[in-house]
């Protein structure tokens, strides 16, 4: 097995942690809709930065990086919901075997961010529905949460991309 570039791994992991902290800070001050009566959205700059940074690793390293980032997010922010590990590893798989692009430009990164957030939220909603954890209808979920979240993060994605460009 090839040796993982430890410095790059650590550097990129610290960058993701900083973005997770930023997300947590923003989400703390964003209005929360616990009663599901109106619009609410979540900041996912960390996830968008992850989709950009994961491409800087070689094939196997990407999965290790995905697993570590996913596990950290699941434990600290994701209520120990292990599906986040799978989502982060799937993004690595998608970039490696399906998209096969090493360096993304702004429109590509925005599209990838959009798809990633959409898939993550859709998957979690499906799991919640299957397990009977929620009775919220698909249209309510899409109108009150999914679309506002996608819109908010699309506005944020050029900033994330600009920071990524400075880093690489």
């Amino acid at each position: 097995m090839k040796k993982i570039n430890e410095n790059l791994f650590l550097r990129n992991f610290l960058i993701i942690i900083l973005f997770f902290v930023f997300d947590s800070f923003v989400n703390h001050f964003l209005p929360t809709d616990f009663m599901k009566t109106g619009i609410s959205f979540v900041c996912y700059s960390g996830l968008m930065m992850y989709t950009l940074l994961v491409g800087s690793f070689k094939k196997v390293e990407r999965f290790a990086y995905g697993a570590v980032c996913g596990a950290y997010y699941a434990v600290v922010y994701g209520d120990s919901f292990v599906i986040y590990i799978l989502i982060y590893c799937f993004i690595a798989f998608f970039l490696t075997y399906l998209l096969k692009i090493e360096q993304l430009n702004l429109p590509e990164s925005m599209m990838l961010g959009f798809l990633t957030i959409f898939l993550q939220e859709a998957l979690i909603y499906c799991l919640m529905w299957i397990s009977g954890t929620t009775q919220i209808q698909v249209d309510s979920f899409v109108i009150y949460f999914l679309l506002p979240t996608l819109l908010f993060n699309m506005i944020l994605s050029p900033v994330v991309y600009a920071i990524y460009n400075k880093l690489v």
Partner: peptide, 9 residues
């Protein structure tokens, strides 16, 4: 703190 998720309660 709170979990940054729509499903968080």
């Amino acid at each position: 703190g709170r979990v940054p998720s729509y499903w968080n309660q």
